[in-house]
Amino acid sequence: MLTKIEIGDHPLDINALNAWLNQSPQDGAVVTFVGKVRALETETISLYLEHYQGMTEKVLTHIVKQARERWSLNRVVVVHRVGEILANQSIVFVGVSSGHRHAAFAAAEFIMDILKNEAPFWKREKTVDGEYWVKAKDTDKASLAKWG
């Protein structure tokens, strides 16, 4: 069982993270999620990600611990970018390896749902019309309901 949690201001190396996840022959399933900066509705140029250093790592560690209590998981990785991130670039990578797919699918979704509601990150969006803080979505709060 290995866990990798990283916060950094450099672009995510998705290939390296996938390689790290795929190293255990006993794992029958690897599920990954990549969250990206969308550039559709408001013509987003970039996002600036602020976070609460120290608390972020603590919260992410606790989320992974909760996931491991619910499902049998082998490797778990959560990498989140901070600072300025351009449209179409990756913000977050969550990956889970497990013996079987149900645990891997569920755990990856669980980690993202809790991260969205509890990890202290804030997005400031730069658009062609100016800059503003992104508002928290009610749908993110609602997605907690399925985890009890």
Partner: peptide, 8 residues
């Protein structure tokens, strides 16, 4: 003190 979070 901080506003509701918006990461991910």
């Amino acid at each position: 003190f901080f506003p509701p979070v918006t990461g991910g």
